[in-house]
Design a protein around this nucleic acid. Sequence first.
DNA 1: GCAAGGTC
Length: 898
Amino acid sequence: MLLEQHVRFVCLYSATNNYAVVKQRMVLEFGGSGPSVLTIARINTKFDISSTVLQAKGVGSCTSRKGFNGACSIHEYNGGFSGQNVRFKMTSVCGHVMTLDFIGKYNNWDKVDPAELFSKAPTEKKEANPKLNMVKFLQAEARGCDYVVLWLDCDKEGENICFEVLEAIMPVLNKSYANEKTIFRAKFSSITDTDICNAMNRLGEPNRNEALSVDARQELDLRIGCAFTRFQTKYFQGKYGNLDSSLISFGPCQTPTLGFCVERHDKIQSFKPEPYWIIQAKVSKGKEVALTLDWDRVRVFDREVGQMFLNIVKTAREAKVESVIKKEKAKQRPLALNTVEMLRVASSALGMGPQHTMQVAERLYTQGYISYPRTETTHYPENFDLKAALRQQANNPFWSESVKALLSEGINRPRKGNDAGDHPPITPMRSATESELGSDGWRLYEYITRHFIATVSYDCKYLQTSIAFSISSENFTCTGKTLLSSGFTEVMPWQSIAKEESLPSCERGEVFVLDEVKLLEKQTNPPDYLTEAELISLMEKHGIGTDASIPVHINNICQRNYVTVESGRRLKPTNLGIVLVHGYYKIDAELVLPTIRSAVEKQLNLIAQGKANFKQVLQFTLDIFKRKFHYFVDSIAGLDELMEVSFSPIAATGKPLSRCGKCHRFMKYIQAKPSRLHCSHCDETYSLPQNGAIKLFKELRCPLDEFELVLWSSGSRGKSYPLCPYCYSNPPFRDMKKGMGCNECTHPTCQHSLNNLGIGQCVECEHGVMTFDTTSGPKWKMACNKCNVVVHFFENAHKVRVSSDCCESCEASLVIVDFNKAKSPLPGDETQHTGCVFCDPVFQDLVELKHAAMKHPMHRGGQGRRQGRGRGRGRRPGGRGGLKKPKDKMAALAAYFV
DNA sequence: GCAAGGTC
């Protein structure tokens, strides 16, 4: 009893990738015996070296378990905390707990004016990842704890997450110590043992201002991004036929990113090549030595002048060595690797896009091959065991020689890099082989490892030789490089100095034979499209995005069809991308300039520093953008003019296909994505299913709205169904959703509806209904209206219909089949038979349940996967019946008249 | 359906 009174709990919360190190150190340092403290730190679920280390060091009584959300672990141990014995409990979060969004009704694009998103529309915090159930998880672990220590990343985002955690757990904490300080923030500049111990001994408190600056950033990005995106999407949607984009997004990061690509495009377009002339001289000494010399005037832009110099040079027969200058130079070993540098090299040297690179890196990290791959830091922590990391690579045949040499001769001190205070540079964590990593995994790992070895290798030293020649009164130079010691280039051979770069030895006063002199006409060349690596550098320079989000922004502008990735991973803007950026320039250049982001960040920093009020900054910035937005809306014609040049108006696109139910004129089918129907008389656009073919369906009309039905098909061997262009976007019945065809329509009497063509429940999926495809003859089939199951039956039958009667045993609709007399496979001389496709023995051989056979309960040798199924083939569990036609026709009719 | 930022 006494002991229990002394037991106090401390929660330590941390972000996932801080977790392993923090936990290990916490337990070693603070994990004594006695009463209890609860600690929460970052947990890495997949790669948890710390427990192994703990066991190895004999630190006892640390119990570990998985949290109920399956994603985060909890570790508990006893230790000392501000002079008392406590039980520590340590767990983690995964990035942000919450995300910001508008409240539900403001997410309706059709009913909300985007201008309302600037102030009127309320926002709410939602769980960032509902599957993780983070709030409940945190509450479950924090319940009854006395103290909290927050170990999130020490940046503004991390500070914000602190408050997200607190928001979740404050109500469940134990209030017994409410009169003392119970919430602490650990501040660490790196995740090293020393730093962690220091942080634990000097706990501070979370910084609300920094957290608020992030809240402001979130709200600004949300309101501004969504308002502009919705407005321009809705404005241009359906206006141009060959505009191959259904979403025209805008964002404070993605738009400047696109801006960089278009800026380069404009430079290329406006470039005017200029001719210029150079004098090239070739000289030799004996048979062995031949050199090509560079003219000291480099080039001239006047042919006559060039000719004049050529004439001067041509008067000579020899070239005299005026001087030989030798300088020892060094190529510096690289800085320790951070994320953007990794992304640059992966793009330019490995041909891997940033998004893909991060996925590969993430996998290498969770499998324990490399350290945390998202970091800005290029400086190794002071106590980083470089030699130990190097030793792990000593037996890898690809670089073992270099590594062994370094280990025996001593490693070099890494260059002083930038310590951003986030995570250590990216390094290999253990040896690996190509076969265990797979192609891209290995290529990235190989680069990371070679880069790491290079950082502890020596600089590459070489001799730079410049030989100055005079030919007549003109001066020429020849420079070369001779390797002195290869240093790090041994493991980075692509950086090495080739033998061919070296020059022969010669001395001042020597004379070379002038073999050839030429005046060459050349042209200045335009720059090429921006490479991904260059774009990454520009984004980094202007503070657009973060190490983690840069790949996302680049990916976005690709996916939105603003740029395409060309060979050499160069980014070429599309017509749409170019027109958008030119439009922004025309209306309000700040919308696309990279400066806008940094101006906003400046404001946000004022909040973080406590120099400005959260609400005021938000109000001020929103006001500016609200005005920009209204000006943009008023000036949209300026952008539209540019669109008109590149895209054809929707009324002039497409070919007539089916009739509009409102005006009964033909609507045009626009095949370009997103494919749709457009009625130029009503000026309405109707969307269609993507991926598949559309044709007219026998000029039949929907009984509800008189629109002519069209037939969608996924291809000759796939499925097809009719759909009403109007109902497709405006579901007619309560139980229908947008994007449904007649095969899902619950119309009680229409001959194309599910009601009349549905046969029985899908043999594979939970909610689908096998629906008869009336257009499929003579290779008749029925297809599930939800999943991809297709069942062929009654091949070559003359006629197939769905009866209104049901099978007695499985409740599937009966099917009436007519065969021609000559072709009838029916017993006797029968030409017609009515039966259940699932149960009727006569039909058994005529139904090809090939795809479905595996999973249909009746075709699994009596070992049905569900309990309580009936005998019938079409029957579903619990005797619910096989056919999903509305049970009660009156109810369906009622729905129809709603 | 929309932003950007965490991380899985």
